[in-house]
Amino acid sequence: MRGGILWALGTALAFVLTATAFLLLAGLFATPPERSLAPSNPNGDPDPSLDLDLEEGQLTALDDLPGQRLDLAVRNGGEEQLSDISLTLEVASENTALTEARYYRATVDELAVGASRDVGFVLDLSPPAAPGGAVSPEDLEAPQTIVEIQATTPEGVSAVRTVILPLQADS
């Protein structure tokens, strides 16, 4: 009886030791894990006092031409009236060699608590002209268009929206 118990214990011990050795060896020679390149999504920290409401459905109608209309609603979500809200809209190319941007501005004089005001911009979304003699790398993909809208008040309340438009066939 005692011999049987000892045999069983010995067998179990041998099994545990062998399994542990295999696990250690597996860990020792394990290949490095595959890495995901995907960066974490940016987490904006929007100020609830000022909101920019952009109807995304209108973005699909935008074309890489002058005279493109973009509407947005500026909303006061805070508890105090806002005044002198300055809106700046910048149209730029993803191609960082083209540093010139197009700027558009608008102002909302006053916005009561809970109120919203529609603001429209007429944008030139045509591809920026490359300077004379410019050349592009052979594998440069069609650059996207970046539309960045910032709203600020003199009191420092602000909101931002960035729209990425896959518009340009070529620059």
Partner: peptide
């Protein structure tokens, strides 16, 4: 397609080409 974010363009990573270091 078009995307809208609540951050400035300079904070966006996945939308633009970046150089990645892979150990």
């Amino acid at each position: 397609g078009s995307r809208v974010y609540q951050v400035r363009a300079e904070a966006l990573l996945a939308d633009f080409y970046n150089v990645y270091d892979v150990p």
